[in-house]
Amino acid sequence: MGLQVLTACRLIDSRVVYLAHDGNWSEWIEEGETASSEAESEALKARGKAGEAANVVFETYLVDVVDDSGTLKPVSLREFIRANGPTIHPNFGLQAERRKKGDNQAITRRNAATARKVASE
């Protein structure tokens, strides 16, 4: 199977979040913990259910992603829009912020991936 991340809606504001490496829920897909086997996906799901039980998130589910040069990119358009915000209103607050921040996050993510790669070598 390909890569998956676990997404959810955050209870307080229903914002799109992803289960991150550190166990927190991040607004940035780049910080999402990836699963590359069914066992890993099941483990993510179980952690998601714990998040639901703790009233932090609701509607947890797995999203198919590809690793696009160190950036996690959702396969479906719907999930792409969830991860990146509406494709319209480029000047209206959130979307612009996400784009700007997203670029930085992508760089951070690439750096982290490079660091991991270097460490494993």
Partner: peptide
């Protein structure tokens, strides 16, 4: 019942 939906990005 109070008009609050959960949509793609937010309520």
């Amino acid at each position: 019942m109070n008009g609050l939906y959960a949509q793609l990005h937010a309520y």
